[in-house]
Computed example of a mutant assay.
Amino acid sequence: MSGPRNRAARTAPARRPALVVGAGGLIGRALCERMRAAGTEFVAATRDTPPLVRPDGTPAAALSAAGVVHYLATSVTPGLAETRPERVAADHETFVRMLDALSTVENPPLVVLTSTGLTVSESGDGLPCTEDAQALPKSAYARAKLALERELLSRAPLVPGMVLRMTNVYGPGHALRGGYGVVAHWLAAAAEGRPLELWGDPDTTRDYLYVDDAAAALAGLGPEAADLPFDVVNIASGEATTLGRLLGVIREVTDRELTVRLRPGRGFDQPANLLDVTRAHRFLGWRARTPLALGLERTWRALTGAGAAR
Rank of each mutant, 00 (worst) to 15 (best):
C129Y: 03
P223I: 02
L294W: 10
K138L: 15
M162S: 03
L243H: 15
H174M: 11
A306T: 07
E149H: 08
T254L: 02
F42I: 05
R177M: 09
R7C: 09
G285H: 06
L153K: 07
D56M: 10
M166D: 02
S2A: 15
L294M: 09
P160S: 06
R261F: 07
T58M: 12
W300L: 00
G193M: 03
S115C: 04
E149F: 06
A293P: 06
E197T: 10
V277A: 03
L26W: 08
R261S: 07
L292D: 01
E197M: 07
I250S: 00
A30N: 07
V249Y: 05
T116L: 01
L258C: 00
T304A: 03
D91N: 11
R15Y: 12
R301H: 11
W286T: 00
A142M: 09
S121Q: 08
L187M: 06
G25W: 10
A8H: 15
N234T: 04
D255Y: 06
A142I: 04
V53D: 13
L102P: 02
L148C: 14
L113G: 01
D213Y: 08
R10S: 15
L113R: 01
P160C: 05
V68D: 10
G305S: 07
A293I: 09
A30L: 05
H70T: 07
A66V: 05
A14S: 14
A65R: 14
P223R: 01
R34K: 12
A60K: 10
P59N: 14
G181I: 01
R84N: 09
P172C: 02
P157N: 03
S2C: 13
G178V: 08
V43M: 10
K138D: 09
S103C: 06
P17V: 04
L118G: 13
I250M: 11
R10W: 13
L63T: 11
V249F: 03
R261V: 13
W186G: 01
A18I: 05
G307W: 08
R10E: 14
E33K: 14
H185I: 01
D269E: 15
A215K: 06
L247Y: 08
S115L: 03
G161I: 01
T49L: 15
P264F: 04
G244T: 01
A236Y: 03
A288E: 00
R256V: 05
V43L: 11
T49G: 12
A23Y: 11
S2D: 15
P109K: 00
G220C: 03
G248C: 08
R282T: 10
R245Y: 12
H92M: 03
A14G: 13
A135D: 04
T254Y: 04
I27T: 13
L296W: 04
P157E: 04
E257M: 03
L31E: 08
M98E: 07
P271R: 03
R310S: 14
V43D: 14
R29Q: 15
R47M: 14
L246T: 02
